[in-house]
């Protein structure tokens, strides 16, 4: 799995952080998404897919 972000579109809703906190974080200055792990281990894959599906601004792209 490889994750890419289009952070310019991020509206800082923070749902990805709630769902996959080991993969996503928010930067301190404005809450915009930060990728902690672009190629997360298999145990995180379901959570990452869920975060991508829920992201309100369609920021998270997942390639498998």
């Amino acid at each position: 799995m490889k994750i890419t972000l289009d952070a310019d579109k991020c509206c800082a809703a923070g749902q990805c952080v709630l769902i996959a906190p080991e993969v996503f974080d928010q930067r301190d200055e404005d809450g915009v998404v930060v990728l902690l792990d672009a190629e997360p281990p298999a145990g995180q894959h379901a959570a990452v897919r869920e975060a991508a599906a829920i992201c309100p601004a369609a920021v998270i792209e997942v390639q498998e």
């Binding site: 509206c11 800082a12 923070g14 952080v17 709630l18 928010q26 301190d28 200055e29 404005d30 809450g31 915009v32």
Partner: peptide, 15 residues
């Protein structure tokens, strides 16, 4: 919208 919203997004971020 983006400019103004981002002035307050950090205040409500998860951490």
């Amino acid at each position: 919208h983006t400019r103004l919203r981002r002035m307050v997004t950090r205040e409500f971020m998860v951490k």
